[in-house]
Design a protein around this nucleic acid. Structure first.
Lengths: 194, 194
DNA sequence: CTAACAATTAGTACTAGGTACTAAATGTTA
DNA sequence: TAACATTTAGTACCTAGTACTAATTGTTAG
C-alpha cells in the first residue's frame, strides 16, 4: 500500500502524528528539561498538540520529569553512598559463610564489549567476604583473585563466601562467583579486623 | 484541624531567628524537596517568615532546588557511565607505564570509619593497568593484591603502573598506589587481551 | 511606661508551566 | 460530500512560588 503522507506534500516541515510522537518521546528521554513551549518550536505545532501528544504518550509535565530525575538520582546517590554491601545478601551465617546476588547492568560494563568491569565483581566478593566476618569493621589486607570467564551485562552474579581459617585478627575467606552454575570468579581474601 | 508540629513536640517554644535559619539551612540541605508549606509546620512559623528566611539565606525555591539536584546528578550519571578509567590519567606510556590520580571522598568510604573501601582503590589500579596495555580490550585474569594501609576519605591516591612482562596475549602489570609518598596498595595483575 | 526598632504575619498582585475541559477549525478519506 | 481524525483556540484553574506593602506583635533602651 502506497500512501502519500502530509510530509511528502508539505515539504518535510511537519511530521505525521505517529512519527512526531515517536520523536517527542525520544527528545524528552534525551532531554527531560524541555518545556512544552520549546517543543512547539522544535515540531512546529501548537502547544495544545504537544500537550495532547504528552497525554497520549503518558509523559508527565516538565516539573514532574525534573522531579523524577532528581528523586531517581537522589536515591541512587544515597544507596551507593549507603551501600556497605554490593549486591543483595540472600544468606548469611556469621563467621562461616554467605551468599549474595548481584544483577549486573550496562552501567557496570565496558561500553564497547558489554563485558562487566572486573572491579564490580570484585566489589561484590569483597563486601560479601566482609559481611561474613563477625567484626565491626574488617579491612581487606591481601586478596588473590582470578577472573575465570567474562561476564556480560545483564547476567546475575551469585557469590558464595566461606570462611576457611581464622587466626587472631586475620580471617581467610574464599569467595566463588557464578553465573548460572558456571564459575566466573574466584577470590581468596585475607581480612583484618581493626 | 489540629496538627502536631515539631514546635509542639519540642515544648512549643519557637526558636530564635538565628537558630531557626541555621536549622532551616540544614533541613533543606538534607531534604531539598521540602515545600515552604511543609517548613511552616516544622518550624511553627508563617509562610512569610519561611520565605524571608530563604531570601536572607539565599536559598532558592523548591522548583529551583529540585532542578539543581536533577541537573547535578544528570551530568554526574553521564560522567560515571562514560568513565572507563577510574581516576585521572596524568601520564601514560603505552606498553610501558602510567600514572593516575584519584581524589577520594566520603562516598567511597565506610560511613563509620571513613576508611575508603578497598574496591575503589582496586578499581583505580585495575583500570590503570588496563590503560597501560596497548590493546583494544583487556580482561583481568588474575590479580594478587595487598592493601598496606587504610586510606581515609579525602586523601589523594596516586597509582603507578608498570608493565613488567608480556607473553603472548598475557600482560603482567604491577601497580603501586601511594598517599603522600606512602604506599597503601600493591597489585600484581595478569591481563589478557581478547 | 513608652517610644523605637526588630521580627513576624497578612494580604495582594503577579509569575511559569502547566491540567482539564469545551469548542471550533482544518485535513483526510470513504 | 459526509464522517472522522487531527490540530488549534480559548477558558478556568492549579501549585509553589516572587515581590511588594502594610499591619501586627515582641523586645528593649531610656
Amino acid at each position: 500500500m502506497l500512501v502519500l503522507t502530509r510530509g511528502d506534500l508539505m515539504g518535510s516541515k511537519r511530521l505525521p502524528k505517529k512519527k512526531r510522537q515517536d520523536e517527542l518521546r525520544e527528545k524528552l528521554k534525551k532531554d527531560p528539561f524541555l518545556t512544552d513551549e520549546e517543543l512547539t518550536e522544535i515540531f512546529s505545532v501548537s502547544i495544545q498538540t504537544i500537550r495532547l501528544d504528552r497525554l497520549e504518550l503518558g509523559i508527565p509535565e516538565l516539573r514532574e520529569r525534573i522531579k523524577n530525575v532528581a528523586e531517581f538520582n537522589y536515591s541512587k546517590v544515597r544507596s551507593i553512598g549507603g551501600t556497605e554491601i554490593v549486591g543483595e545478601l540472600v544468606d548469611l551465617n556469621l563467621d562461616n559463610n554467605g551468599i549474595s546476588i548481584l544483577e549486573t547492568n550496562s552501567d557496570m560494563a565496558f561500553q564497547k564489549t558489554n563485558v562487566v568491569r572486573g572491579h564490580n565483581i570484585f566489589a561484590q566478593a569483597e563486601s560479601l567476604a566482609m559481611a561474613v566476618i563477625d567484626e565491626e569493621v574488617a579491612l581487606t589486607g591481601v586478596a588473590n583473585i582470578k577472573y575465570k570467564k567474562p561476564v556480560k551485562a545483564g547476567e546475575k552474579l551469585i557469590a558464595k563466601a566461606q570462611l576457611v581459617r581464622k587466626r587472631g585478627n586475620k580471617y581467610f575467606v574464599h569467595v566463588f562467583t557464578y553465573v548460572r552454575q558456571e564459575q566466573v570468579f574466584r577470590g581468596k581474601f585475607i581480612l583484618v579486623s581493626i
